Amino acid sequence: MWEHARHSTTSTTAPSSTSQLRLMYVVDREDGIRMRTVCQRLASAPPTVTRMCDRLQAIGFLERVACPDNRREVALQLTPTGKEHLKRIRDQRDTMLHQAIDNMPPAERRALATGLASLQSQLNAAHGEEHRSDDHSAA
Rank of each mutant, 00 (worst) to 15 (best):
L116M: 07
P46N: 12
V65M: 13
A43N: 12
D31G: 05
Q57R: 07
A58F: 08
Y25E: 11
R109A: 09
E130A: 09
A113D: 11
G115P: 06
A126P: 07
W2Q: 05
T48G: 12
D135A: 06
L86W: 03
C67G: 15
R6H: 02
W2V: 03
P80L: 08
R41Y: 09
T37P: 04
T114A: 10
H4F: 04
E130T: 08
A66L: 13
L116G: 01
R93Q: 03
A66P: 12
R41V: 09
K83R: 11
M52N: 06
G115I: 00
T18E: 02
P47G: 10
R93L: 03
P80V: 09
L116K: 01
E3F: 11
T50N: 14
A107S: 11
S44H: 14
G60Y: 00
P105E: 10
M52K: 04
Q40H: 13
V27D: 06
A138M: 00
I101V: 15
R93A: 03
H98R: 15
L97G: 05
M24W: 00
F61K: 05
E63Y: 04
C67S: 15
R51W: 08
T114L: 08
E84V: 01
P15W: 02
R72M: 12
W2H: 10
A111K: 11
R110C: 04
P15Q: 03
R6S: 04
K83I: 04
S16C: 11
R88F: 06
H131M: 10
S8R: 01
R6V: 01
E63P: 02
N70W: 13
R71S: 13
D91C: 09
Q120T: 05
A139F: 08
L76W: 02
V65T: 14
S16G: 15
M96C: 01
V27F: 09
M96T: 02
I59S: 05
N103K: 15
R72T: 15
A58V: 04
L21E: 03
A45Q: 12
V38M: 06
T9C: 06
R132I: 06
R72L: 12
K87S: 05
A58G: 13
N70D: 15
L116A: 02
A5R: 06
M96V: 04
R88Q: 10
G115L: 04
